[in-house]
Computed example of a mutant assay.
Amino acid sequence: MLLPLPDGEFKAYLFDCDGTITDSMPAHHRAWLTALGEWGGDFPEELFYAWGGRTVVDVITDLNARQGLSMPVAEVAARREELFQAMLPEITAVPGVMEHISQAYGRVPFAVVSGSTRESVTASLTALDLLDRFPVLVCAEDYARPKPDPEGYLLAAGLLGVDPRDCVVFEDTELGVAAARAAGMACVRVPAPWER
């Protein structure tokens, strides 16, 4: 099922990674539950999806505050990444997005704008044999203000040399859609796994 594009001629396609290019959100949630559980933390599925697009550091910090814990942020983040990477062989691409990548590759430039680390994004795209399609990766460590702030998307447009108004964004989270709109970009909302 090809997701419909908004009207217009777009000079660049910008993609979130997890849940947008890669159907990885269920695996991410399992990795979170295991990593947090080792420290007595929890991350209910509804909250996990509501917080989609937030950085790992922000999530752990806020879960600590909500749950009265003092989980070590760097250790939990590293453990979550280790667990997620072990699941990469089971990750697949999101079909409607993959069709756009196949149809537009070589015709317009692509970038990834993700709240995940470069390590995680690179591993996910490599597992799907897609890394070479994305010359620009804007990841959590590349910008100061996470989604819904437009900084990441504006940075990607600048790196591609394309006016933000000429970009279309593919996003699966409300924070990501808000970031794209704040950047002045058109947006395609990618359905969540249970909506497909």
Rank of each mutant, 00 (worst) to 15 (best):
Gly68His: 12
Asp163Cys: 05
Ala86Met: 13
Arg30Asp: 13
Asp142Gln: 15
Asp18Ala: 01
Leu2Met: 15
Glu141Thr: 07
Ala186Thr: 08
Val190His: 08
Trp39Lys: 01
Ala65Leu: 14
Gly96Pro: 13
Ala77Thr: 11
Leu69Tyr: 13
Glu99Trp: 13
Asp16Gly: 09
Glu195Tyr: 11
Asp18Pro: 00
Gln67Ala: 05
Arg107Pro: 00
His29Phe: 12
Gly96Thr: 12
Tyr105Glu: 13
Val162Glu: 01
Phe110Ala: 07
Thr92Val: 12
His100Val: 06
Phe43Glu: 11
Ala65Asp: 15
Phe15Leu: 04
Pro44Arg: 02
Glu99Asn: 13
Val177Met: 10
Arg79His: 15
Pro109Tyr: 02
Ala123Asn: 01
Ala93Phe: 07
Leu14Asn: 02
Leu159Lys: 14
Pro95Val: 05
Val57Ser: 08
Val177Ser: 04
Ala144Gln: 05
Arg107Gln: 04
Phe15Ser: 07
Leu128Ala: 05
Ile21Met: 05
Phe134Ser: 02
Ser124Trp: 02
Asp16Thr: 08
Ala65Phe: 13
Leu33Ala: 12
Asp18His: 01
Pro193His: 09
Leu83Tyr: 10
Met98Pro: 04
Val94Pro: 01
Asp166Tyr: 05
Pro191Ser: 06
Ala27Arg: 07
Thr122Lys: 12
Pro193Asn: 09
Asp18Ser: 02
Met25Ser: 01
Gly68Glu: 11
Asp16Glu: 07
Ala104Cys: 00
Leu88Ser: 07
Val188Cys: 10
Glu75Val: 03
Val162Cys: 02
Gly184Ser: 08
Cys139Asp: 01
Gly106Met: 00
Ala183Thr: 08
Phe170Asp: 14
His29Pro: 10
Leu160Phe: 07
Gly40Ile: 07
Phe84Thr: 10
Asp129Val: 04
Ala78Thr: 09
Glu9Cys: 07
Val121Ala: 08
Arg181Ile: 08
Pro191Glu: 06
